[in-house]
Simulated scan of single mutants.
Amino acid sequence: MTSNAERVLRYMLTSPMDPNWARDITEHTDLPNGTLLPILTRMLKQGWLERYWEDDFIAESEGRPRRRYYRFTQGGLEGARIALAHWTAEHGSHASGRLRPNPLRSHSTEVNGG
């Protein structure tokens, strides 16, 4: 695992049942899309994540384009926690140290999976 992947996992695991969209992840990990999207693609191919578009109605009601969300699969959540534990054992806690807190993170975002 790379330090950038570690940052993505650490952020997504702060609230593992909530969906995430790329812009939110980039804002809290300081990773540009060109770095983030290949990481998310690898996690999708590993079966750790699933992705889906939010419901059209939600986006239209907020006057913006639809968001593509990412969330852990059941097996992916376990795999991510194990991988992060191994990373932490090898590199120390918060080795990257570049996450920014999100005060809205504790609130669930309602989306229509599918």
Score class of each variant (00 low, 15 high):
71 R>Y: 07
18 D>A: 11
65 P>E: 12
51 R>A: 11
56 D>E: 15
79 G>W: 05
83 A>W: 08
65 P>K: 09
83 A>V: 05
45 K>Q: 12
68 R>W: 08
31 L>W: 02
37 L>I: 10
81 R>I: 10
43 M>C: 03
36 L>N: 01
65 P>I: 08
20 N>Y: 04
64 R>T: 01
22 A>P: 09
32 P>R: 14
56 D>N: 14
52 Y>P: 05
58 I>K: 14
70 Y>V: 06
40 L>H: 04
31 L>I: 01
42 R>Q: 12
79 G>L: 13
50 E>P: 09
87 W>V: 02
23 R>F: 10
29 T>P: 02
74 Q>C: 10
27 E>T: 07
76 G>M: 01
76 G>P: 04
53 W>I: 12
85 A>Y: 00
49 L>W: 00
34 G>W: 12
39 I>Q: 03
66 R>K: 15
34 G>D: 11
72 F>C: 00
45 K>E: 14
83 A>E: 10
54 E>T: 02
41 T>A: 15
80 A>G: 01
69 Y>S: 08
72 F>G: 00
79 G>C: 08
34 G>C: 10
62 E>H: 12
64 R>L: 03
91 H>E: 07
25 I>D: 07
72 F>I: 01
35 T>N: 15
57 F>Y: 11
64 R>M: 04
44 L>M: 09
29 T>K: 06
86 H>K: 15
74 Q>G: 11
63 G>N: 09
61 S>Y: 11
40 L>C: 08
87 W>H: 14
47 G>L: 02
88 T>G: 04
78 E>I: 12
81 R>N: 12
42 R>D: 15
44 L>H: 04
76 G>N: 03
19 P>R: 02
68 R>L: 15
63 G>F: 04
35 T>G: 11
72 F>N: 00
83 A>D: 06
52 Y>K: 11
52 Y>D: 08
79 G>Q: 14
25 I>C: 05
66 R>A: 10
51 R>L: 09
60 E>V: 10
82 I>M: 00
38 P>D: 10
40 L>P: 01
51 R>V: 06
